[in-house]
Design a binder for these strands. Structure first.
Length: 503
RNA sequence: GGUCCUGUGGCCGAGUGGCUAGGCAGAGCUCUGCAAAAGCUUCUACAGCGGUUCGAAUCCGCUCGGGACCUCCA
């Protein structure tokens, strides 16, 4: 029996996972900023952590999964025009900011459902937790690690680093950055610097009159800084110290580093034990991002309406594509790669469909092919080990694929049904279901055919069968070709039967 | 410029000292009236150079290439 291991960004090594409370896990994952439509890049963390969530549940843990919605505007970098990207776009689109946020939240949820991601236990919004954030900021000010300037509040990174570094919580502990170097290398920013130090970050930002998203605070009217919401909400719902904090690698610095500093001041401890970061999806080797102008929105991805795409890719194809790679590797997007996933998934799913419907004999006869039996059992038992090894979904998938020819050969009669014992066949059914359905969250995407269509096709199938038995291939081919043109593909099975697929 | 990661066959992508990844594509064969599907077989690898070792894709060094973060970002 292997045990679950995670690569912990905090310690930079693989560690055995042990929950703080036996049997219970608290997990916080940074959610989307709903100022725009979700894109392909968003698919990765939310599918990755959906797998983490599903796997922990599979292992029997009771998991509280918190994933926030960032719906409060974040300011841009100091030195640029100070603006809130949500409110800016709201003006452009002539919408209420909350209306805009709601629209993109809905779209995000639509995409998550399409991917068959389980809903988090709690999905808190930043705007719904302004009070908690203000309380936290007040505490940080009280303790002397933040200062107020012109209605804004900034975190004093240098003071924090000096005091908490002595307690083993230095600024840079997560990202491996050395503060002294940061102080030297941080770029010179233009003008109006209210901050004592360039690396200080905002906890609260004074809102200019034209700024639409605004709240009353002890320091005037403004809005929260871009890291405090996660600290406030994770503490509220998971406690001062919880098990897992997840997100994309790009959030490691500064976002998660700042979260640690804020929480450390308030709670005197690093908020999470295990920090998990998924790697990026790249397009032609470049990270996808707003600033690269190569963003494929999820709606475009599914429909194929983007100039990079030669066709649309279904949510399950995308999910499968992501699972075929380890989550800490970069994943390069291309039409070729997605088409490979589409075909691979189809083959896997068809084998699985046959396997799950296979009725097993009740007898306990031994396998007639011991070698094959042992090979199959070896692969099936190895899946858990691969999954426990920092969620090596790619390797699990490879193991399952090795069994596909076995299943198909049984189906085609090329391998005798008795080659494997019923016990092993049952194990195979169980493991395929567990991994593909329960843990990987894959679903059947084949178009549903209704009863009437089934009856019609059965009739047509019989007519065609008669024609074939008379060697009237002109008729049988006409039936097959015309149905294909109508989007129904007929397949003659080995056993003389016929199956069809709606294209 | 600083910090870090990475370079596997036509494409995607596991693997971290000796043992096969896997998917897709290509080729051949089998089955089939034909097709589709499926099965079997098969080809093209570990960026380059040097070192450590009985043995390296895997460890070390250098060279070259790619990327991430340092700024909103999944």
């Amino acid at each position: 029996m292997s045990t679950l291991q995670f690569y912990n960004s905090l310690t930079r090594e693989k560690e055995a996972f042990k929950s703080i409370l036996p049997g219970k896990v608290g997990m916080y994952v940074c959610g989307p900023t709903v100022s725009g439509e979700s894109h392909l890049g968003h698919a990765r963390p939310f599918i990755t952590f959906d797998i983490v969530y599903r796997y922990l549940k599979h292992l029997g843990y009771q998991v509280r999964y918190v994933r926030n919605i960032t719906d409060a505007g974040h300011f841009e970098e100091e030195g640029r025009e100070s603006e809130d990207k949500i409110s800016k776009k709201a003006v452009l689109e002539k919408m209420e900011p909350m209306e805009l946020v709601q629209k993109y939240t809905n779209l995000f949820h639509w995409a998550m459902r399409a991917f068959n991601n389980l809903e988090p236990s709690i999905e808190p919004t930043a705007t719904g937790h302004i009070v908690e954030q203000i309380v936290m900021i007040e505490k940080i000010i009280q303790d002397g690690y933040a200062y107020v300037v012109n209605g804004s509040v900034y975190f004093d990174v240098e003071k924090y680093h000096k005091d908490f570094g002595a307690k083993g919580m230095q600024y840079g502990i997560l990202s491996g950055r050395v503060l002294e170097e940061q102080l030297e290398t941080t770029r010179e920013l233009e003008s109006q610097d209210e901050k004592r130090n360039k690396i200080d970050f905002a906890l609260w930002k004074n809102a200019a009159p034209e700024h639409i998203m605004r709240w009353q605070s002890p320091w005037g009217i403004g809005f929260p800084g871009w890291h405090i919401e996660c600290s406030a909400m994770s503490t509220k719902y998971l406690g001062e110290e919880f098990d897992i904090h997840g997100g994309g690698m790009d959030l490691q610095f500064p976002h998660h580093e700042c979260e640690i500093a804020q929480s450390a001041v308030c709670n005197h401890k690093i908020p999470a034990k295990y920090w998990l970061h998924n790697n990026m999806i790249t397009i032609n080797g470049k990270k996808m991002g707003k600033s690269y102008n190569n963003v494929i929105k999820l709606s475009e991805l599914f429909s194929g309406t983007h100039e990079i795409l030669t066709q649309g890719y279904s949510p399950m194809t995308v999910r499968f594509f992501i699972l075929q790679t380890h989550y800490r590797s970069t994943l390069d997007f291309s039409n070729e790669a997605l088409q490979a996933s589409e075909k691979g998934l189809k083959r896997m799913w068809e084998a699985f469909s046959y396997l799950r419907k296979m009725s097993l004999s009740q007898t306990d006869a031994d396998a007639s092919n011991i070698e094959l039996e042992n090979k199959v059992i070896g692969i099936l038992n190895g899946l858990e080990e691969d999954m426990n090894d920092d969620l090596n979904t790619a390797k699990v998938m490879a193991g399952l694929f090795e069994l596909v020819p076995v299943i198909n050969s049984i189906k085609d009669g090329k391998i005798d049904r008795n080659a494997l014992s019923s016990k092993t066949l049952a194990l195979m059914q169980g493991q395929f279901t567990t991994y593909l359905v329960d843990i990987f969250g894959l679903t059947d995407e084949s178009k549903q055919d209704d009863d009437k269509l089934t009856a019609v096709l059965q009739l047509i199938g019989e007519i065609r069968k008669d024609a074939r038995s008379r060697k009237d291939f002109a008729t049988s081919d006409k039936i097959r070709n015309q149905l294909l043109a109508a989007g129904i593909q007929l397949k003659d099975e080995k056993d003389g039967g016929m199956s069809w697929e709606l294209l």
